[in-house]
């Protein structure tokens, strides 16, 4: 039995989300961009961004209601590390114009050279960080 069906089907749903937003609204489903633009003052496009985020947050609750249990979440990092990581993710995704969704899902699908460079970079630094934390420093 292929063990990765939930990953594959879940990924396809994420791709469907990206396709839906592009075909219907002409927008890229990039989470960091959708949220980052909302942190500035109210603009005409704040409403659809908010609607997307409400849907995003309802998704896991709907999933939990359908399957009867909450999706597992195991967080090993300490609070100071989580704060540092959050700051880096927030600032970095805005400076780099995207994250795993905008550059990863949408950008790679559009064959954008910028997105290929971004994905290669963040995959490399993420893997290097995990290597350093787990195999050099002996962390979680």
């Amino acid at each position: 039995m292929f063990a990765y069906w939930p990953s594959l089907v879940g990924g396809m749903l994420i791709g469907l989300s990206s396709a839906t937003l592009l075909i219907l609204n002409g927008r890229i489903a990039g989470i960091s961009g959708i949220v980052g633009a909302m942190l500035r003052r109210w603009r005409s496009d704040t409403a659809w961004r908010a609607a997307f985020l409400v849907g995003l947050m309802l998704g896991p609750l709907v999933f939990a209601a359908l399957v009867g249990h909450r999706p597992p979440m195991r967080i090993a990092a300490s609070v100071p590390v989580l704060v540092l990581a959050g700051l880096l993710v927030g600032f970095g995704t805005r400076l780099g114009s995207g994250c795993t969704s905008g550059h990863g899902v949408s950008g790679l699908a559009r064959l954008s050279p910028r997105s290929f460079a971004a994905v290669g970079t963040f995959m490399a630094t993420a893997a290097a960080t995990v290597f350093l934390v787990r195999h050099v420093l002996g962390g979680p």
Binding site: I31, S32, V35, L56, I75, A76, A77, V81, L82, L84, A85, G86, L87, L88, V89, G90, F91, G92, T93, R94, L95, G96, S97, C99, T100, S101, H103, R114, A117, A118, V119, T121, F122, M123, A124, T125, A126, A127, A128, T129, V130, V133
Partner: peptide, 21 residues
């Protein structure tokens, strides 16, 4: 900016296991 921002994001992602979505 693209490479530096993505590099920062990757470090944070590797520390916590969370990306924005």
């Amino acid at each position: 900016k693209l490479i530096g921002g993505s590099a920062m994001f990757g470090i944070g992602w590797g520390l916590a296991g969370f990306c924005p979505g």
